[in-house]
Computed example of a mutant assay.
Amino acid sequence: MSVSAEDEGLRIEIENGVAALTLDMPSTRNAFGSEVAAEFTQFFKDANTRQDVRSILIRSTGDRDFCLGGAASRKPTAPPRTTLDYRFVSTPHIEMFKAMWELERPVVSQVQGTVAGVGWLLALLADMVVAAKGSRWTHVFVRRGMIPHAGDSFYLPRIIPLHRLNEIALLGDTVTADTLSEWGLINRLVDREQLAETAIDLARRLAEQPTRGLGLAKRHYRRSLEADWSTMLREEMAGQALLTTSADRNEILAASAEGRKPLLTGD
């Protein structure tokens, strides 16, 4: 896919603790290349220590597509010269999804239209998924004679039950958000007209929570998919101890003792 100069790429807007990351690339149907992947990566890495970011909303423009996967670079370079070189083509997207997986801020994805290729990871690596009824998800790799890449083979087996994943990946059939909701992959399945309001309301609710606690909780859940029992208990104990020093934890205790609503800052 070629990239138009009229595409804005990735827009980042922050208001009241919610960082809205909007893919605006209509010429590629919101498929994105290495430059946009690098922008995502940098934001995710920075967000862990930004006081103004307490939750993240990932969305895209238009009704037709959420994200159709990867796209050509905005600054085309010479094609890889050998098969060995081609192994590294997806590195920018791999780095992006690694940063998203390790992110200690809660993430909501707002999904409409068609989802394909790496769009699956962009949607499903969020902590909560809000999808429009009837939105269409196509895993697509088998249709292109490819294997899943950009981290797909690591992340999706940790999110989707194996036999369901095999059906998606080996047949390449399109499924709807309604079906994914039945499989337990969608948090909020709503009419298209309610999508934006539902997603931003959820992101705002998350932004009002004790941010540090949420970050450690999601980190532990994801870490548990890779670590053993003793490692997780040690990390859990360390996390619990660290939170005793947080401003939000002490504010919650004080508010409880004084019979008032806590005023949380995310610190």
Results as ranks from 00 to 15, higher is better:
Leu84Pro: 01
Thr91Arg: 14
Arg204Ala: 02
Met25Gly: 07
Gly62Arg: 10
Phe141Arg: 08
Ser153Val: 12
Val53His: 04
Thr22Leu: 13
Gln51Asp: 13
Ser60Gln: 12
Thr83Glu: 14
Ser230Glu: 15
Glu102Gln: 12
Leu171Met: 08
Glu35Met: 01
Asp63Glu: 14
Thr174Ala: 14
Ala177Val: 04
Phe66Tyr: 13
Asn16Asp: 15
Leu125His: 02
Arg64Asp: 15
Leu103Gln: 05
Val140Pro: 07
Thr198Asp: 02
Pro262Thr: 02
Trp120His: 11
Phe43Ala: 08
Ser27Val: 02
Leu225Thr: 12
Ala20Thr: 15
Ser34Val: 05
Thr176Ser: 15
Gly113Thr: 03
Asp228Thr: 07
Ser34His: 03
Ala132Met: 09
Leu189Pro: 07
Val130Phe: 02
Arg143Gly: 15
Thr198Lys: 00
Phe88Val: 05
Arg234Asn: 10
Leu23Pro: 11
Glu15Cys: 12
Val142Gly: 11
Gly33Phe: 00
Lys261Phe: 10
Thr22Glu: 15
Ile252Gln: 03
Val18Trp: 01
Val3Asp: 01
Ala199Glu: 04
Thr211Arg: 03
Tyr86Leu: 14
Leu84Ile: 10
Gly134Thr: 05
Pro76Trp: 02
Ser90Asn: 13
Ala196Pro: 08
Asp24Lys: 02
Ile168Val: 14
Glu35Val: 04
Pro148Thr: 06
Ala123Glu: 03
Gly62Asp: 13
Pro26Cys: 01
Gly239Met: 06
Glu8Phe: 13
Thr174Met: 13
Lys75Met: 15
Thr138Phe: 09
Asp267Phe: 02
Thr245Trp: 12
Gly184Ser: 04
Leu57Val: 09
Ala177Tyr: 04
Ser135Cys: 13
Lys98Gln: 05
Arg222Trp: 03
Ser34Thr: 03
Ile186Thr: 07
Gln110Ile: 00
Gln42Asn: 11
Asp46Ile: 04
Thr231Gly: 01
Met146Ala: 15
Thr244Asp: 10
Ala254Arg: 12
Leu189Trp: 03
